[in-house]
């Protein structure tokens, strides 16, 4: 059982939690994640480790309420316990050896992008950060990110923050304007990362993507998170989550990520009927 020490609502949809998990905190590195099961009936879901403090024995996660698993998690309050947390899982991000990178993040992908930016900053790498959100309400961690980046651009899908654009538009602008990077790191939705790769390819820039996949055990056993990378079967949980973007079969990844969409939608509807007032 893992205690929730702190719960902070960033906005209606996005929540930050501090969990007591000393063994995981001891080990966690940027890019790694946990598998979490809120209660005995819940699904096991992967969530990025946003921050870890080995001295305090805590890890932090940020989740967006998208389905029953995260709604259930959101029902928990400070002082409550989460049934299972396993980690740290996946390979840590490779962030050494860069002088200048672009870090592109969409939505709650910032939970992974922020710890990466922190390591890059510590390594003396100049990081141009591009963040995309659905609308103004969804923007989180702006100041924190600003303090460790070379430059920062924040865009929204609806322009409610005054800047209506896609993250890929901003990346394109920079590259067309002559900016060059040792690598472009992207973390967000799969179509977004694919679009980033389509652009970086033109400029022959190394493109690293952080793949999200449906997982159960997170240790390589179940094979649910498999991806085609470089024509071979890879597992996001033990081989990833980061891969060379040009090698990833994004089409297959998109198909696999929506394999349970009908069931997920149905479950969410049922859950929301049960708990009236939960925002869809």
């Amino acid at each position: 059982m893992f205690e929730i020490l702190q719960k902070t609502r960033f906005n209606d949809y996005t929540v930050h939690m501090v969990l007591k998990a000393p063994m995981i905190a001891e080990k966690a590195k940027a890019g790694q994640f946990v598998i979490l099961r809120t209660d005995k009936f819940a699904e096991r879901i992967p969530l990025t480790i946003f921050n870890a403090d080995s001295a305090k024995g805590t890890i932090e996660i940020i989740y967006q309420k998208v389905g029953v698993a995260t709604y259930k998690l959101d029902k928990k309050s400070e002082g409550d316990f989460i049934e299972d947390v396993l980690g740290p899982l996946g390979k840590p991000s490779k962030l050494e050896g860069y002088k200048k990178v672009a870090l592109v993040s969409g939505g709650v992908g910032i939970a992974a992008a922020y710890p990466m930016a922190k390591v890059l900053y510590k390594n003396g790498c100049k990081t141009d950060v591009i963040l995309g959100f659905r609308n103004k309400e969804f923007i989180i961690l702006e100041d924190a990110m600003k303090s460790i980046s070379n430059s920062i651009e924040i865009v929204t899908d609806d322009g409610s923050n005054g800047k209506k654009a896609l993250v890929t538009d901003m990346l394109k602008d920079k590259l067309e304007g002559g900016e060059r990077y040792d690598a472009v790191l992207s973390v967000g939705s799969i179509p977004m990362m694919k679009a980033v790769c389509d652009i970086t390819k033109i400029y022959k820039i190394k493109s690293i993507v952080s793949m999200t996949a449906i997982m159960i055990d997170g240790t390589g056993m179940c094979g649910g998170c498999r991806l085609k990378v470089g024509g071979k079967t890879k597992f996001a949980c033990v081989d990833g989550p980061e891969f060379y973007g040009y090698e990833v079969d994004f089409y297959e990844a998109i198909i696999r990520n929506r394999m349970f969409k009908i069931q997920e939608d149905r479950a969410r509807e049922k859950y929301c009927n049960l708990y009236k007032g939960v925002k869809l």
Partner: peptide, 21 residues
């Protein structure tokens, strides 16, 4: 450990499970 696959076309389609999963 890791389940084996056949590495044939279409193994990543929706509706294709590995038995472990």
């Amino acid at each position: 450990g890791l389940p084996k696959f056949m590495n044939i076309k279409g193994e990543g389609l929706s509706g294709v499970y590995c038995a472990n999963e």
